[in-house]
Simulated assay, not measured.
Amino acid sequence: MLLSRIFSVFLRFGEFVCAAVVMGIVAYFLHQHHKYNIGPEGREIYTEVIAVLSAVLSLIWLLPFTSQFLHYPFDLLISAAWFAAFGALVNWIHRMNCGGIFHWGGLTNGSYCSQWKAAEAFSFISACFWLASAILGFYVYHHLQNRTVATDGVATHRRRWGRSHV
């Protein structure tokens, strides 16, 4: 149980860091779109909303509550939203003449293409973190729900919310 909580904290911190990075990069893209009218505004707004929502939820769920594994359906939903954001970003790269999706050369020059690819990469990593949180939450929640607890020689079964009955 302790190992799963430590792993959960690691995943939540990773989710927050990825969301913060994507939030910053995409906010810069939105500024560029407002100033110079370049870039796909709809894709950027969607990605920014998902990044902000992820950052807030990962910080809230980072706090060690007893029921921290109960929100695995929301983790799965946010993971799907991140995969959609990744797909939206990848789909636009063909129109920008930045090379292929997996052409990672020249990423350190600070160009628009390198920033776009960084947003793609961190959105994919964030989706993987959220998916891992969903899998961990599903496993821990359903594993602990069916676990038998022994108290004073009488076997009891754990209920859904942690209380036991005889």
Rank of each mutant, 00 (worst) to 15 (best):
E41R: 10
G42F: 06
R43D: 13
I45N: 09
I45F: 08
I45E: 13
I45A: 04
Y46V: 12
Y46P: 04
Y46Q: 14
T47V: 08
V49Q: 04
I50C: 11
I50V: 14
I50D: 02
A51N: 01
A55Q: 03
V56Y: 06
S58W: 03
S58M: 03
W61S: 07
W61T: 05
W61H: 11
L62I: 12
L62N: 10
L62M: 15
L63V: 15
S67N: 15
S67I: 04
F69T: 00
L70Q: 15
H71F: 14
Y72W: 15
P73N: 07
P73V: 00
L76C: 14
S79Y: 03
W82T: 04
A84D: 06
A85F: 01
G87H: 07
A88V: 11
L89Y: 00
W92A: 12
I93A: 00
H94Y: 09
M96T: 09
N97E: 14
C98N: 01
C98Y: 00
G99W: 03
G100H: 02
G100K: 04
G100F: 02
I101V: 14
W104I: 03
G105T: 14
G105Y: 08
G105F: 12
G105I: 06
T108V: 11
T108E: 02
N109Y: 11
N109T: 14
G110F: 07
S111Q: 01
S111L: 05
S111G: 09
C113H: 08
S114D: 13
S114F: 03
A118R: 03
A119C: 05
A121Q: 04
F122D: 01
F124K: 05
F124V: 09
I125Y: 06
I125P: 01
S126M: 07
F129Q: 00
L131G: 12
L131F: 15
L131Q: 10
A132S: 10
S133R: 07
I135Q: 01
I135K: 10
L136W: 10
G137W: 02
F138K: 07
Y139I: 13
V140Y: 08
V140R: 07
